[in-house]
Every structure is written in C-alpha cells, then in structure tokens.
Design a protein around this nucleic acid. Sequence first.
DNA 1: GTGAAAGCGCTAACAC
DNA 2: GTGTTAGCGCTTTCAC
Lengths: 356, 356
Amino acid sequence: MASAHRVNIAEVATAAGVSVGTVSRVLNESPNVREMTRRRVTEVIKRLNYRPSKTAASLSRGSSRTVVILVPFLTRPSVVARLASAIRVFDDHGFDTLVRTVETAAQCDRHVAALSARDEADGAVVLSLRLNRVHLEALRSSRLPLTMVDTEAPGVPSTIVDDVRGGWLATEHLISLGHRRIAFVGDGRGCDLRFVSTRRRLLGYRRALEHHGLAYDPALVRLGQHSAASAAALTTRLLALAEPPTAIFASADTLAIGVLAAADQAGRAVPADLSVIGFDDLDAAAQLGLSTIHQPLAESGEHGGSRLCALIGGQPVGRLREELPLTVVARASTARLKWRPWPVGSGALQAAETPA
Amino acid sequence: MASAHRVNIAEVATAAGVSVGTVSRVLNESPNVREMTRRRVTEVIKRLNYRPSKTAASLSRGSSRTVVILVPFLTRPSVVARLASAIRVFDDHGFDTLVRTVETAAQCDRHVAALSARDEADGAVVLSLRLNRVHLEALRSSRLPLTMVDTEAPGVPSTIVDDVRGGWLATEHLISLGHRRIAFVGDGRGCDLRFVSTRRRLLGYRRALEHHGLAYDPALVRLGQHSAASAAALTTRLLALAEPPTAIFASADTLAIGVLAAADQAGRAVPADLSVIGFDDLDAAAQLGLSTIHQPLAESGEHGGSRLCALIGGQPVGRLREELPLTVVARASTARLKWRPWPVGSGALQAAETPA
DNA sequence: GTGAAAGCGCTAACAC
DNA sequence: GTGTTAGCGCTTTCAC
C-alpha cells in the first residue's frame, strides 16, 4: 500500500493546505498556531504517517540535544549505577544519551578521538576513565562541553570522591579494631585501561599503615582482575601464607564478595578469623553484612549529568572540582582482632617488625 | 584567538585549494584522492580545527548510523549484561547506541511513542521490556527496523529464553532432591512496567508442582521489589510460617542473595536446613555457591544487536523467534531434603495434602 | 496567525 | 583524481 517513500514536511504542508513553516510550528508546539490549523495539521500528520526527521531538525537548529557518555565496559556495578543516574538526568533535561563503552586503551583512544575530531553531540561526560594528556588536549581544543565523573582533569568540571581518603578510612577502620596484618586485594592487573581508583585506595592503605607505624608488606598486596573470582583466587593465596593477614581490604565490594567466598572455603570464619572490608556499598554489601566504604554512586552520575546540562546551557556549573563524601559502614564482616589462632610465631601482633 | 565560529567543509576546501567534494572524500577515506591532496587537506583540517558535523553527514547520507536501545532502568545485572554486549556489537558494526531507560509505564509510552513517531535512528532493540498492543502497532506502522531481546512480539525478530521452562527446571531440581514444600520468591510487585519473566518462571514452578502432584500453596509464593533486601524480607516471613518451606526458588540471583541472607539471619543453614536456587547465573552466584538456572545473557544481547544490524543492512535475520538454552547449575545451595527438623506435624513431606 | 525563503553542513551523482 | 551542484528535511527569520 504505502510506498517506501518517506513523507516529509513539505508533503504534509501541501496536504494540509498550509506552509511548511506552519507544520514546523505545530511540530514544535509553538503557541502561534490557530487551534483549528493545529488540529488539521496534526490530522494530516497522522494520516500520512509522517515521521519528522530528528537529524534534519538537529542540523537546522544547530544542536542535536544529544550527549555522549564515555564509560568503561559495563562490568562494574559502580559504573552502571553512575551511568544509569546520568542517563536519567539527561532524559529529564530532554537530552538523548549516546553510550560509548571502552574495553581497551585503543578503543579509548578511538572514542576520545572521535569525540574531539567530530561534531557528534552537544556535550559529553567521561565516567570512571582516566584520560591521558593527548586525550585531554584533544578534548580541550575541540571546545566540546565536558564534565567528568569519578575521574578528573584540570579545567574540567569533575565530580569525584577522595579515593586515597577512602583507602585510608578502610584501613584505619581495621587498624582501630586491632588488626596489624592487613592485606589489600584489588584489581587493575592485566587491564590496559587507566583505572586509577584502586591505585589511589592502595595509596590510602599505605598511608594509614605508615601513620600507625605499620610496615607495608608487598606480599600482602595482591592485584588481579575486577571479578569476584579473581579476588577469591588472590585471597586463597593470601590465606595460605605462613603469616596470613587477619584482615583484608578489598578495593571494591565485587572483590570483597570473592574474598568472603575464599575465606569460607579456607575454613576461616568472618569476622572471627578474618575481617573483610569492601568499597562502594553496593546493594549486595548490605545483604552480605559486608563492612564497606560508602560512596554516593547515583549522586555522582546525577551531578555529572546536570553539570553538563548547565554547561551546555551556558549556566554556571559551580565548583570545578566537586568532591562527594565517603563514609565507613561497619557491618558484620569486620571485628576486633582476637589473638591470632594461626602461626603462633614471633611476629604475632608485631607485623611492624617484619622486613619492609 | 579562535572565534566562536564553527568552521565548515567549504572553508576547509577553500583553505586547501580544493573543492568540498574532495574534502568530503578525504573525510570518508575514499580511495579516489591523490596522496598529496589528502595530506594537504588533512593538514588544513588540523590547522583550522575543523570538526565535521555528524548531523549534516547523517542528513545528507540519509542514515544516522545510530540505533536506539530501549531498556528498563539499569538496576538488574541481567539487563546490564545484555545491554553491554549489544552495545559492543553495535560499536563493532560502526553504529552509535542511544540508550533510553524506562522506569515507569508512562515513560515507556513516551519513549515508544517517540521511537514510532519520529525518525531518530536506523533501528532499535527493545530489551527486557514487555510492550502492549498500542506500542507494537505504533512500532509496526513506523516500519522502524526492530529486534527484541528477552521479550517478544509477533513478527519481530526476538531472542528469548523459555522462562516457563526455567521455572520448571528450577522447581524440578528441588523436587528431585526430595523437597515438597517449595516457596517462590519473586519481583514485579509495585512496578507498573510489564516485566514478565518472573510471572513466567512462576508458571513453570506451578506446572512442575502440578506435574508431581504437589499442591500449589499461595502462602508460599511471595512477590516484592527487585532487590535483595526485598527478597530477604519476604524470606524472613516465609521462614516464620508454621510450616515453612524446605526450599526456595528465587526468580533471580539478585533475589536469591537476599534469600540466603535472610536464611542466615533466621539461623537456617543452607543447604542443610534450606535449599535455595536462583536464576540467571550472575558472577556472584558462582562465588556464593548458589545453585541457579544459567541463561546466556551476553549472548542474547549480541544476537539482538547483530540481528538488528542485519535487518538494517537488508540481510536475512534468521528465525524470527530465537530461543537460547537454559541449564541447571547445581552448586552448594541446594541439597537433598533431610527429614524436616521443624514443625513435625501431620503435613510433613505431604504438602500435597494441604488445601489448595 | 501564516507564508516565503534562506540557510544548516554535508554526501553523492555526474561531468570533466 | 577532482570540481560542481543538487538535494537531504528541517528551523527560523522576516514579511504581511
């Protein structure tokens, strides 16, 4: 019946006996259209099954009402939580969201290059991805409105948390419970993307140890993939050490789940034999009774999103560097250190004396 | 230095001493450009900081190389897994992905209407969202290339699993272990979206019970939100029943986590006192030793994505209704029923006799 | 309140 | 291999 022909605004205008201008006004809900005219046009639109072209409108208008979000591949719940809330904000503001996921450094280069070298959207947010100087310079010179979430760059409105402080808080929590041999289980190994939060949390861990005069023992620091399975494997090895840790700080709740599983398998009761603290405070953490560092994930995405909208609209975005708070959530997976039941050697409770 | 003026292809052409056609050819990597010319143009592009407009190209070309994915708000790991793999496929095929998330029925209406009434993309995939007749009719008449994942509609290429069979498999697994009093914990309550998988899994559960001559006891079926916390609350009440279940089928792993937590809190050992089986086989399930029904999440997203690409390219998409396999994964959370330690009443092991 | 017409910035067909 | 040019389908002045 209907041909493959796409009907355009001109045909609608003709069929309705008005000009394209009027049809456009109807489309855009301009008040300057007589009610009767509007009705007539609307009817023709329906009858002809007319579908206005977003592309043509964008070109003519000079803006696409579309933004890009650049994120790591969606394997981390924390990334997803931020992304989801950002998308919601954009939708509320009438923006469409182009999601570009990045798995490798090469892909990151490609996407950042495209973002910089082409006019594809009204703005972009970079989420949980650490960009290098080349990326940043390219983006800067493109003058594309840009905000960042869970990552930062000079001159770019960024919404972050202090991961170093988070690492410090987690470690401090364990130390305050009497733990001295505290291990760190993180991700970032075998991944060529520049995730950086883990390294910053590790730094906070080191600083807290230092602050309390505890030695930093590289044997207690294990990095793997970002998966519970990987964390479990690392933990199994940690628990098999001659002098195993009495507490483990996992750099993410996802990893902490693996730590808990491995502890269970190794016959270590949590928190009686082993204290475990995570990071993020995912829903699952509460269910598992996992102590963790809470960070406002959804909020960060919202901020990044609404700040980009402001930027695009030429409105003030507030502080360039916006820091959201972190808090310790003590649940059932951390407890005061009992005298260690394992290797009752010379080093008990005196980890500070082990060789650095 | 540079003015706010957007430089366009004509200015590049002039500056490079060539025509716009040639610049376009360089932009689109046409082979029909002398190497020297290409170099010169590229250089001018760089110098003028020229950013070709995706919108203009799309309009002129007649296609945007962009697709839309319509998904429920990203709270379910299963949805995210499917989405992520679909995005990857689109990226591989040179398509940009517009992600539109839906939280309420009204939002679903709005997004489907936009998809149908406007020309916004080259195609779309509807993911884990049950559409009604109005939606479907609108989409059909829009002639937008469309595929579906984890949901289906007549005439639309759909990639699904048989959730009824999944429910059956899970229940059957528990029955085969000797369980007779089997509860169902699901989501879908207080949610105006038409999720349907839970209801279909519940149907499979009923059928399996029936098949084995076991009575369906509404008191053992509890629906709440899609969160571990909700499932935990429901489970707590189930375990407080005069005749509590000896096994629970949770309609998703996320819920099963809550079930496990509640069981733990109630002092019920899993699987000694209570068997638990989930659905999806998320990463966490393996870590928690959770028995579950495995479904190929990433694969479903890939199929939906590549089938849409095929559809857009005018290639064959294969079977309209594509069903992916489900398998039982028996882990540590399900075990053979011991004689029930609780209310040693008349109904023990004879749940079939309780009033329907 | 409506019409006419000038772009928006590109691609692709055609000519040379 | 390169130039010319006609659209692509809208929005938006500017008249009236």
